[in-house]
């Protein structure tokens, strides 16, 4: 395969990926079984009583009332929600998945909560460790492969 053909192939695959990104976004809401963050944001009260599954970042923790304030990312920005029934230990900056019921006044009662990150620091840990992983792949790769300047591409060393 000539380099020109391969470059054209990469461009076409890139366009295909963009198309998939658009298709995914357009169809996600039809397949997601719960009201999305966007739906809650635009018309909250009509969803009261429905089951919901949202992910959000912890803003504040009220241990006395056993509630947690989370921010859910939406297309319009961020939707603040108060979640009750969170018995797990979380701190501001942490990330939660909440499966529960929509209550009036931007309030959720949680049936199940998954603490994805207990604090902002666990996210930093994840990214730092991921960076090491990426470096490891690059180093190992170039031990066995090199750039072929004539043919434009990678070849076996």
């Amino acid at each position: 395969m000539r380099p020109g053909v391969r470059v054209l192939g990469v461009v076409l695959l890139g366009l295909l990926l963009v198309g998939m990104g658009s298709h995914y976004d357009a169809n996600y809401e039809n397949h997601w079984p719960y009201p999305t963050g966007d739906a809650l944001e635009s018309d909250y009260e009509t969803h009261v009583g429905e089951q919901v599954f949202v992910s959000g970042t912890v803003q504040a923790v009220d241990r006395g009332n056993e509630t947690v304030e989370i921010l859910v990312e939406t297309e319009q920005g961020e939707l603040p929600l108060t979640v009750s029934g969170v018995s797990r230990d979380v701190q501001p900056g942490g990330a939660l998945q909440v499966y529960g019921t929509v209550r009036p006044d931007t309030h959720l009662t949680a049936d199940n909560v998954v603490v994805v990150n207990s604090a902002g620091s666990s996210r930093t840990f994840k990214y730092a460790v991921s960076l090491i992983g990426a470096l490891l792949v690059v180093v190992l790769f170039f031990r066995h492969w090199r750039v072929d300047r004539d043919d434009i591409g990678f070849e076996v060393k």
Partner: peptide
């Protein structure tokens, strides 16, 4: 997505 991205990366190889 993995199949499409893998195909793109594959085209960066000469053999």
């Amino acid at each position: 997505g993995v199949v499409v991205i893998a195909a793109g990366i594959t085209l960066c190889f000469t053999e």
